[in-house]
C-alpha cells in the first residue's frame, strides 16, 4: 500500500456510528477531570516546594545553625531521624499487623473477628495529637526503665551507647507511637488480601492434608505476598510523613546516633515546630527540607507500586 496522507482512501461504506449516551459522556468527562485535578494538585505541590525551597539549598551558614553550616549538614540528621523512626515503627507494626490480619481473616470465629477488625480500624480515627499526648504523658515515662536496661547491657551496640533521656522522650518512644498509628492501614490492607485468597486454593491445600498453618503457608501467604509488602510500604510512607506525634514526643535536634538520647527529630516534626519562628531564610530552608521529604515518600510509594506490580506480573504466569 503506497498511499500518502494526501490521497487517503475515503471509506466506501458508512461506518456504523458508535452508540453513545449523555451519561457515558458525562461520566467520561468526570473521570478525566478528576484524574487531571489530582495530577494538577500533585504538580502544584511539587512546583511550590521547588520554587520556594530552591533558595533554601544555599543560604548563609548561620541560617543552618547552630548545629550545621550547610543544607546537607542540616537536613541529613533530620532525614536520618525520619527514616530511623519510621523503621522502628515498621519493625513493631508490620509483624503485629500481619498477625492481626491473619487472626481476623482466618483464625478467629466471626463474633470475635468482626469487632476486632472494627477496633483496629477505629485506631485510625484517633487524631495524631491525641497519640502525641499519650506518647509524652503515658508512654514516655514507662519506657525509661527499658532504656536503662538497654543502656546497661547493650551499650556495646553503638546505637544504645550514650546518655539516656530522663523523660523517655526518645526516638524509640516516637517509633512505638508511630507503630500504633500505622497499624490500622497495614492491618486493613493485609486483611483484605488475605480474605481474598481463593477458597478453591485453600481447599486444595486442606484436601492434601495440610494443617491450618500449612494451608496458610501454601496459599494465603504466597497469594497475599504483594499485598503484604505494599501494605507495609504504605505504612512506611505514613510513618515518614507523620508530624504531630513525633513533634510532641521528640525534642528538637537531628539524628545523633544514639537511640536512647533526646533529639533525633524528623523532617516533618522539625518543620512543624520551627514554622512559627520563621524568617524568610529559615522558611526557605524548611521548605527545601520538605522537598527532600516529599521526594523520599514519593520514592517509597513508587517502590511499593513496583514491587506489587512485579508480584502481579509473576502471578499472571509466564
Amino acid at each position: 500500500m503506497s498511499t500518502t496522507t494526501k490521497d487517503k482512501p475515503q471509506a466506501q461504506e458508512p461506518v456504523p456510528r458508535a452508540i453513545t449516551s449523555v451519561g457515558d459522556r458525562v461520566f467520561a468527562g468526570l473521570t478525566l477531570g478528576a484524574s487531571l485535578l489530582i495530577l494538577a494538585a500533585l504538580a502544584s505541590v511539587f512546583i511550590f516546594l521547588f520554587a520556594k525551597g530552591l533558595p533554601g539549598f544555599n543560604r548563609a551558614a548561620e541560617v543552618y545553625g547552630p548545629r550545621a553550616d550547610s543544607f546537607l549538614g542540616y537536613v541529613a540528621p533530620l532525614l536520618g531521624g525520619t527514616v530511623i523512626a519510621a523503621i522502628i515503627a515498621l519493625i513493631i507494626a508490620v509483624p503485629l499487623a500481619w498477625g492481626i490480619a491473619l487472626v481476623i481473616s482466618h483464625y478467629a470465629p466471626k463474633f470475635i473477628a468482626v469487632p476486632v477488625a472494627y477496633l483496629v480500624d477505629l485506631l485510625a480515627a484517633v487524631p495524631s495529637v491525641v497519640f502525641g499526648l499519650w506518647g509524652v504523658i503515658v508512654l514516655a515515662p514507662k519506657m525509661v526503665p527499658a532504656f536503662d536496661f538497654l543502656n546497661s547491657y547493650f551499650a556495646w551496640i553503638p546505637i544504645f551507647d550514650g546518655d539516656v533521656s530522663n523523660s523517655g522522650r526518645t526516638i524509640i518512644t516516637a517509633g512505638v507511637v508511630l507503630a500504633i498509628m500505622i497499624l490500622p492501614i497495614i492491618t486493613a490492607i493485609t486483611r483484605e488480601v488475605f480474605s481474598r485468597t481463593p477458597r478453591l486454593n485453600q481447599e486444595a491445600a486442606l484436601a492434601l492434608g495440610a494443617t491450618r498453618w500449612e494451608m496458610m503457608r501454601l496459599t494465603v501467604f504466597p497469594y497475599g505476598r504483594s499485598g503484604m509488602v505494599s501494605a507495609a510500604m504504605l505504612g512506611l510512607g505514613r510513618a515518614l510523613g507523620e508530624t504531630m506525634a513525633v513533634a510532641m514526643v521528640l525534642s528538637l535536634g537531628g539524628w545523633s546516633g544514639n537511640l536512647l538520647g533526646p533529639g533525633n527529630s524528623s523532617i516533618a516534626a522539625n518543620i512543624a515546630s520551627k514554622y512559627k519562628e520563621r524568617s524568610e531564610d529559615l522558611l526557605s530552608v524548611l521548605i527545601a527540607s520538605g522537598l527532600v521529604l516529599f521526594l523520599l515518600t514519593f520514592l517509597v510509594n513508587f517502590a511499593a507500586r513496583w514491587i506489587v506490580g512485579r508480584a502481579e506480573r509473576k502471578m499472571a504466569g509466564a
Binding site: 486454593n201 481447599e203 486444595a204 484436601a207 492434608g209 501454601l218 504466597p222 505476598r225 509473576k314 502471578m315
Partner: peptide
Amino acid sequence: RQIGMVFQRPNPFPT
C-alpha cells in the same frame, strides 16, 4: 492425607 480429593474446577497453586 489418606483420602485425596480432586475438585470441580482445577485448582493448582498459582504461585
